[in-house]
Simulated scan of single mutants.
Amino acid sequence: MDLLEYQGKQLFARHGVPVPSGSPATTVEEAVAAADEIGYPCVVKAQVQIGGRGKAGGIKVAKDRQEAEEHSKAILGMDIKGHTVHEVWIEAASDIAAEYYASIVFDRSAKRPLVMLSTQGGMDIEEVAEKDPTALVRLHVDPLLGFQDFHARRLAFEAGVDADVVRPLGALLAKLYDAFVKEEAMLVEVNPLIVTADRQVAALDAKVTLDDNSLFRHPDNAALRNVAAEDEQERMARERGLTFVKLDGNVGILGNGAGLVMSTLDVVAQAGGSAANFLDAGGGSKAEAITQAVEVILSNPNVTAVLFNIFGGITRCDEVARGLIEAFDQIKPSVPFVVRLDGTNDVEGRKLLADANLPNVHTESTMLGAAKKVVELAG
């Protein structure tokens, strides 16, 4: 789950990471009132879960009340790369002497957190890494050891940080790591991490991605979920308790078990098709769950054919067949379905489908055969 900038800063502040004072606002009146309270100059910042806000005109400095009102009017409702601005963050202006970059991300390949630091902050870090790979210093941290002072000194030395800010920067990185671990984040990024004229350091921006699977342990964080900004299909699937990821293709996919679904995506690609989604109905799927899964898949207008790939273990193939029959009765899909049932009660499941004689439903006995058939029907 991605947080808005100000939500990330509030999370940072709970762990002692220095951040400029600020206040969120959803209306021009609230924004102006916040600016008056914070004082001038201040910064009006669009709150959307996308980068490039400054280049799009979503970050403006207000020298006085009139400019605060003008900027708030211009930014609220603005479209930034397909994201509408519904909220702004009014922040005290900072006296910036230098801009750094810092982030901590969970590196799945190394199975440990990766801390990155660069003295070239304030710009797209991808461009920095591409032009000068040595400008971005990387360090893996043993999760059992945690982030230590010597980690901070090594990062600062290799990145070329000014000597007088090594200590405060190290303290900030340690607090950032504390937030990363305790909030069960997948990413915390500060760009820019600023050095002020009086040689203090602070997080001028905050990009935070939390692990969805840990939110039940963090109800305060779960409450920050911006439902309006989420993909409608993925929200629908979550409400139904389905494991779902939207993709860019036109072949709807349903399977039982993450491994089987991933294999199905691969086989569809091998057959020349492109999956529209990953949907794992889970073990022991009942008819009602299958009906809900069909609703979610068909809510994507790009889907031109659907593949059901079920290997019955805990899941009974006859239950899947009943769910599909029920779905056709309720939803009346207009796109073709290809169904492969194998395993527990597969004979019964195929008989149920044959007796129901559903329109435009094709059965296949192998995964590859099903993939080839669905790609052919998808067009």
Rank of each mutant, 00 (worst) to 15 (best):
N302Q: 12
A275R: 09
C317G: 03
V303I: 04
C317E: 01
N300S: 11
N345F: 00
L298I: 15
R350A: 14
F308W: 05
D342G: 15
V294D: 04
A321Y: 00
R340F: 08
F311E: 02
E295D: 13
A321P: 15
L352N: 06
R340T: 07
A305L: 12
R340G: 02
G313I: 09
V296G: 05
G343K: 08
A305H: 07
G349N: 00
V320L: 06
L324K: 07
L324A: 03
F311N: 06
S285F: 03
A275V: 07
E295A: 05
S299H: 13
R316F: 03
A287F: 11
A275Y: 10
G313D: 07
G313F: 05
E348Y: 00
K286N: 06
F311W: 04
E319C: 09
R340E: 01
D346Y: 15
G312Q: 01
D329V: 10
R350V: 10
Q330L: 15
K351T: 06
G323L: 07
V268T: 01
I331R: 08
K286T: 02
T304Q: 03
L307E: 03
P333E: 12
T304Y: 07
N277S: 05
N309P: 07
R316K: 10
K351I: 09
G283I: 15
G283T: 09
V335K: 11
G284P: 13
